[in-house]
Computed example of a mutant assay.
Amino acid sequence: MSYQTILYEVSDRIATLTLNRPDAMNATTDEMYQELQDLIPRIAADRDVACVILTGAGRGFCAGADLKARKDDATPLERRARHRWILKDILEPLYRLEKPVIAAVNGAAAGAGFNIALACDFIIASEQASFIQAFARVGLVPDLGGLYLLGRVIGINKAKELCFTARKVSAEEAKALGIVNHVVPHDRLLDEARAIASKITAASPTAIAMTKTLLDKSTNATIDQMLEYESYAQTIAYLTPEYEEGVLAFREKRAPDFAAAARR
């Protein structure tokens, strides 16, 4: 399927998904959400994809919702149905994707754009990137998972400050707050993201999938629950061809080919 608002390519088991409305700073529209709704399950099912990089075309990552595309005549029930569609069919599948997703934030990540980046597993930011929970400026409540995700990343008190004041956060401050993992030169952003993605693609896809799922559960689980989850996951891992390949490669003093093993 060809897309109008996103670009998508796969190379060396790394998928690069680019929000592609540069004239509008990649602001989201229903068309973009529909295309993401189609693409995310395809990524999940594609055995040739082991890691995803999500970025934006042009000067910005994502400026949030495109207010020019809003439907002024929509009823409250219609608006709620639309938001539930976006959250359940786009945001949640992105968050739960059992493949690591790296947000490569190349410019402004505002409103929904900020929260889309938070739904990824971690963020690499250009030195030109900025982050803003802009909702209060237009009388709205943070959405796209922001009320769930932001506090878990930086703590509730700091999350309240960013949401209440709607102030812009630089890439360096975002790193200090724990929002961003790495700040890199603007012209090196995708290269650095691909370098990290390459390390991920060299690992066992089954082990990475289980590790991601269990780490996400750990924020709301007890120690007893996590130890039980770990015991089940490790038992499964011992039974995979990837584990056999890892042991054999260790004995033969070579790099393991986990991608090939996963296909056996």
Rank of each mutant, 00 (worst) to 15 (best):
S2Y: 06
S2M: 14
Y3D: 12
T5M: 05
Y8W: 11
Y8N: 11
V10W: 10
D12I: 03
A15L: 13
T16N: 08
L17Y: 05
L19H: 04
P22S: 04
D23C: 04
D23P: 00
D23F: 02
N26L: 00
T29L: 04
Q34V: 06
Q34G: 13
D38R: 08
D38C: 14
R42I: 09
I43R: 14
A45H: 10
R47W: 05
R47D: 14
C51R: 06
V52I: 13
I53V: 15
G56R: 01
A57Q: 04
A57L: 03
G58V: 09
C62L: 04
A63M: 06
G64Y: 02
D66S: 00
L67A: 11
K68N: 07
R70H: 05
R70L: 10
K71Y: 02
D72A: 09
D73M: 08
T75D: 10
P76K: 05
P76M: 07
A81M: 12
R82L: 15
R82P: 05
W85G: 09
D89N: 15
L91C: 15
Y95L: 13
E98Q: 14
P100W: 04
P100V: 08
P100L: 10
V101W: 01
V101C: 06
A108H: 08
I116D: 00
A117T: 07
L118S: 03
A119T: 12
C120A: 12
I123R: 01
A125G: 03
S126P: 02
S126N: 01
E127Q: 13
E127C: 06
F131G: 02
I132S: 03
Q133R: 15
A134P: 03
F135K: 00
R137A: 15
R137K: 13
V138P: 01
L140K: 12
V141L: 10
V141G: 06
D143I: 05
D143P: 04
L144V: 07
G145M: 13
L147N: 08
L147H: 05
L147C: 09
V153C: 12
N157L: 11
K158G: 02
K160S: 12
K160N: 10
L162S: 00
T165M: 13
A166D: 07
R167A: 05
R167T: 08
R167S: 06
S170T: 15
E172P: 05
A174H: 05
A174Q: 01
K175P: 04
A176K: 13
L177R: 10
H182W: 13
V183I: 07
L189I: 08
E192R: 10
A193H: 08
T201P: 09
A203T: 13
A203V: 06
S204Q: 04
P205D: 03
T206Q: 08
M210G: 02
M210Y: 09
T211Q: 11
T213Y: 11
D216N: 10
S218R: 00
T222P: 00
I223S: 13
Q225D: 09
M226C: 01
M226Y: 03
L227D: 07
E230P: 00
Y232S: 12
Y232I: 07
A233T: 02
T235S: 14
T235P: 00
L239K: 13
E242F: 01
E244C: 03
E245H: 04
V247D: 07
V247A: 11
F250C: 07
A255H: 10
A261N: 09
